[in-house]
């Protein structure tokens, strides 16, 4: 194996830092859309009361709704000027920044791959970076299908930026060649699948958390004398609970088979490298726990009494287990899988 290309590794680090900055800017833009998109919220409330297409907003301006549901519309056109609203422009800017950030992020991973001359996810830093990218791409994918959730961008980017920051500081390790046990194409397949599945599951967890907020809001707002607090204001701008729940489920339905295949590939690799396909190593044990919890989630959705909120909590528990597996098991509990690269 060739050595490490130092200048390439350095370049990769710089691009990585830049992409964090771009994501942070995108977050600012999403938040701006959120903060200044208040008119949309008022329109929403009005739509629920009177399902007309033309509405008189609070300020006397006429707002157009093109989605006759309680999902906030994407394009808010101010008919008095014929231009897109500030919030809408902020939203599009945010999406553009996210795409740009994702491209940089991809670039940083690609350059790192060239630097180490191998798949660049053999330690925690590299893995966190890849999983974060998958989370962003999953969000962009969902956005493609359901543009109505655009203003939720901050909720997705916040954990990604936090994770990348953690990756770039605490978990960081220099570009290194792979130790012999990691030199296997099963590693490439296994880790790629795990990071795709876990990135997707992160998106599902965020939507599930928002679902719980929305359900609570829906329950409270039906009561007399309800005054929306900060969370209530947030919740009223969320897509319908049902939409959040179904989207979260569909992501799991996509990620669960992927995670299953990832575990199988991991076992095939373990069989070749360590002489057994399964050994209840801490990392393997937690992969099992995560898998079983998501199987629980799928069952809970089909079980009377657990549907909805019950299942949602199981989904969050699943992501909690993923986080535990990534942070605590790698750093605190050691095992054969101690690839963390921390010293």
């Amino acid at each position: 194996m060739a050595g490490i290309n130092g200048s390439m590794a350095h370049l990769s680090d710089s691009i990585f830092t830049t992409s964090i900055a771009v994501y942070a800017l995108a977050m600012v833009a999403y938040t701006a859309e959120y903060a200044f998109g208040r008119r949309g919220r008022i329109a929403d409330t009005a739509v629920l009361a009177a399902p007309a297409r033309e509405l008189v907003g609070a300020g006397g301006t006429v707002l157009t709704k093109d989605t006759p549901s309680d999902i906030p519309s994407v394009v808010e056109i101010d008919p008095t000027t014929g231009k897109r609203s500030f919030a809408d422009r902020a939203g599009w800017l945010a999406v553009a920044l996210t795409v740009f950030g994702a491209l940089l992020h991809t670039g940083s991973i690609a350059v790192r791959a060239i630097a180490v001359d191998a798949v660049p996810w053999s330690n925690m830093y590299e893995f966190a970076s890849v999983a974060g990218l998958v989370g962003v791409v999953a969000f962009l994918g969902v956005l493609w299908k359901a543009p109505s959730i655009r203003h939720l961008g901050s909720f997705i980017l916040l954990p990604v930026v936090l994770m990348m920051f953690l990756a770039g500081t605490v978990l960081y390790s220099k570009a290194q060649p792979l130790v012999p046990a990691l030199q296997s194409y099963w590693l490439a397949i296994h880790v790629t699948l795990v990071s795709i599945a876990e990135g997707a599951l992160m998106t599902s967890a965020v939507l599930t958390a928002l679902y719980l907020v929305k359900v609570r809001h829906d329950r409270l707002s039906g009561k007399p004398g309800y005054v929306p607090g900060r969370v209530g204001t947030l919740a009223s701008r969320l897509p319908a609970a049902d939409v959040l729940d179904k989207t979260a489920y569909r992501i799991v339905a996509f990620a669960f088979p992927l995670y299953t295949v990832a575990i199988i590939c991991g076992s095939i690799w373990a069989e070749a490298a360590w002489g057994r396909y399964w050994g209840w190593d801490p990392k393997e044990t937690w992969a099992f726990i995560v898998w079983v919890i998501y199987a629980c989630y799928l069952h809970a959705r089909a079980t009377a009494g657990f549907k909805g909120k019950g299942a949602a909590w199981v989904n969050l528990a699943g992501f909690g287990a993923i986080t535990f597996n990534f942070l605590v098991v790698n750093i605190v509990v050691s095992g054969l899988h101690s690839y963390a690269g921390l010293s």
Binding site: W280, P282, F288, I289, I293, C296, T303, V314, V329
Partner: peptide, 17 residues
Amino acid sequence: ALILLFLLAVAAVPGSL
């Protein structure tokens, strides 16, 4: 089935800690 699955996950935890 749901409860047993959940128990299975919980029971595995001490095995890793």
